[in-house]
């Protein structure tokens, strides 16, 4: 009796062409549940301070990634980190989020998520694929701030030492820039379009990438 073929075939969009054969490194998806609580009037100031502190920590982290990107991937990819730093300084985050905390007395995580969601909703409806894909950049920055707020340390791709094909639900540009040189043989993700930065990065690293797998 023949065994059933255990092969699973997933198809997606060829974001960067090529063939890769190797061990899979599967990045577990981290779906963070956003807590919501009411902040007492006396605690609003310290909640705003907690948010500003998380923003500052995220900026520090981004500067490190920016410098690394500059060294490893060159100026054009480092520019993306430039845009990320500008997002961290954006009035939407520095004014709107704080205003929501101050006026509706909710925690920073919840206020931040409201602002990010509002932005994403607008971007999702764009006809132009490039502009629609920018929502991943906003989400990436938002997740980074959330991680600093909630004290989560993400298992990063920096821990990979053997050459592997990286499989993930989603890879953010900062995820991919954290990978050691020569370790990534290819990327395969569920999320992402042809013009997402991870796709562009794979093209410049000349390694194959499949996105939008199902």
């Amino acid at each position: 009796m023949a065994l059933e073929d255990p092969t699973i075939v997933l198809r997606g969009v060829a974001a960067s062409e090529g063939i890769a054969i190797g061990t899979a490194f599967v990045l577990e998806d981290e779906d963070v549940a956003i807590p919501r609580w009411e902040v007492h009037r006396d605690r609003v100031k310290s909640e705003v301070a907690r948010f500003r502190y998380a923003l500052g920590r995220t900026k520090d982290e981004m500067v490190v990634i920016h410098n690394k990107a500059l060294k490893v991937f060159g100026k054009s990819h480092a520019r993306l980190m430039d845009a990320y730093l500008l997002i961290l300084n954006d009035p939407f985050l520095n004014k709107d989020v704080i205003k929501i905390i101050e006026t509706t007395h909710v925690n920073a995580e919840f206020a931040l998520t409201q602002v990010i969601d509002r932005t994403i909703k607008v971007m999702e409806n764009f006809e132009d694929e490039y502009f629609r894909d920018r929502k991943y950049d906003i989400l990436d920055v938002g997740h980074k701030i959330l991680r600093h707020l909630m004290g989560h340390e993400k298992k990063t791709l920096q821990t990979i030492t053997d050459p592997s094909i990286i499989i993930a639900h989603n890879l953010t540009p900062t995820d991919t820039m954290n990978i050691k040189e020569g370790v990534a043989l290819g990327f395969a993700t569920n999320i992402g379009g042809k013009t997402a930065h991870t796709a562009l990065l794979a093209q410049s690293m000349t390694i194959p990438a499949v996105v939008g797998m199902r």
């Binding site: 997002i87 985050l93 132009d128 502009f131």
Partner: peptide, 15 residues
């Protein structure tokens, strides 16, 4: 939109 906001600029999707 605020001309000092990159998020605002991207939300214009100005081609």
């Amino acid at each position: 939109i605020d001309g000092k906001s990159i998020m605002g600029l991207l939300m214009l999707a100005a081609g």
